[in-house]
Structure formats: structure tokens, C-alpha cells
Amino acid sequence: MTDDTWVERGHEISTTADLREYVAEIRAEVSHMQTGLQRAAYGAFTGRSWLDAPEGELPADIVGEHLEMTVTPAGMTARDAVYRQSLAALVVALDAVDRATLTAWLADINAREPDRPA
């Protein structure tokens, strides 16, 4: 059984106010997914959970520090390389959705009040 909550919610949108609320909900959900995935990836690649990490050791950029690879490190198996690159792509895709929802929010503000400070 699949959960079509987002699809069903989309069927109910009939005003721009509804659309603004929907986009805001998507942005919040994506932010939670992105944070959770980054913390889980940190735990998987360091061998300790995010909560157990020593102070000052938490990465500012999990993709850049643990996932993204332009060259596969010596000795890394193809399986590990594909896994890391897949996780990096997923985190980047979630970031793209976050940026798209911000753009939709700014477009809405611009349509209503073009001279309003963003």
C-alpha cells in the first residue's frame, strides 16, 4: 500500500493561498529529510551516530566531506563508490527541491508586492 498524501493534498488546491501553504509544507518536509539523511550518512561513514560525535567534529558539509567524489579514492570498491555517489545525488536533489520551493515563495511575493524587500 502506498501513501499518496501529497498527491491527494495537491488535488485539493484551489487558491494561491492554498498553493503557498502547500509549497511551505513541502519545503519543511524536504528540510527534515535532508537533515535526517545527512546525519544518517555521517553515522554510516564514521561508525558513530551524530549524537555521539565529539564536539567540533561534526561536518559543516556532509556531501563535500564524506560523499562527493570527483575521483574514487584508492582502494574504494565500486559498491562503496556507487553508494556514496548515490547518497550525494539524493542530498543534492533534496537541496534542489528546497531551492525551488524558495524560488516559488519569492515568485509569489514578487507577484503580489514587486517592490517589497525579500
Rank of each mutant, 00 (worst) to 15 (best):
A88I: 08
V92F: 06
E68L: 15
R27T: 04
R20I: 03
P73K: 11
A78D: 15
I26W: 08
L87F: 04
L58G: 01
T72C: 01
D52N: 01
L106K: 15
E29M: 05
S86G: 09
M69N: 11
I62F: 04
L58C: 02
L67R: 04
G36M: 03
V23W: 08
D61G: 12
L67Q: 01
F45L: 15
D98H: 15
E57M: 01
M69D: 11
T103R: 07
E68K: 12
A78L: 13
A93G: 12
E25N: 01
P73I: 12
L106D: 09
L67M: 00
A100L: 11
E57H: 02
I26P: 06
P54F: 02
L67N: 01
G75H: 06
L19P: 06
V71Q: 14
A28I: 09
P54N: 06
L37C: 00
E65F: 05
V63R: 13
A88V: 08
A53G: 02
R99I: 14
T101P: 07
L87R: 06
A41P: 12
H32C: 05
E55D: 13
S31F: 02
E65A: 13
G56M: 02
W105A: 12
E68A: 13
T35N: 03
E57P: 07
D61N: 15
D95F: 14
T35G: 05
E21F: 08
E29Q: 08
L67W: 10
A24F: 01
P54T: 06
V92W: 01
A74T: 15
E25C: 11
E65L: 12
E25H: 05
R39F: 03
S86V: 02
L87P: 00
T46A: 04
A53V: 01
T16G: 06
